[in-house]
């Protein structure tokens, strides 16, 4: 079900670090050094929280990918699906609102299409993968 990449304990921390580095760079380049420092503060704070009380909290361990077993991976999958559903429904509603206001060239339609195509592609890929 899962790939070797996801099995690595470094996958999620690595992706998180890259995303935060990207956010830091974007804010810094965009002329918002205070915002960039906030990004650093958030990731350092999160790291400290996990390091200090991560051993006692299954939720914190799971959120940091440090102690995920099969049950928590299932929880993670369901939570990801829930978050994706919320995001897609929000995009659809925003597209409707913007279109009704006469702003037909809004980005929400493209994002809805991207979500739909990604879903269909994932279904096809997983169907053949077994």
């Amino acid at each position: 079900m899962e790939t070797a990449m996801y099995r690595s304990k470094w996958f999620l921390p690595g992706v998180t670090l890259v995303l935060f580095a990207g956010a830091f760079a974007a804010l810094w380049i965009g002329g918002d050094p205070i915002g960039a420092l906030w990004v650093v503060g958030v990731i350092v704070g999160w790291g400290l929280l996990v390091a200090l009380i991560g051993r006692r909290s299954e939720t914190l361990r799971g959120l940091s990918a440090g102690g995920r077993d099969e049950r928590f991976r299932l929880i993670d999958m369901r939570a990801t699906a829930f978050a994706g559903t919320v995001l897609i429904l929000t995009l659809i509603v925003l597209w409707m609102i913007e279109t009704a206001r006469g702003h037909e060239s809004n980005p929400y339609g493209s994002l809805c299409a991207l979500a739909g195509i990604s879903y269909a592609a994932a279904v096809v890929f997983m169907r053949f993968r077994g």
Binding site: E58, G67, D69, E70, R71, F72
Partner: peptide, 16 residues
């Protein structure tokens, strides 16, 4: 696995 996973199986809340 985690202790919580064993607890969930024992309580019938999670199917392993």
């Amino acid at each position: 696995v985690s202790r919580q996973t064993i607890n969930s199986i024992e309580k019938g809340r999670y199917t392993p």
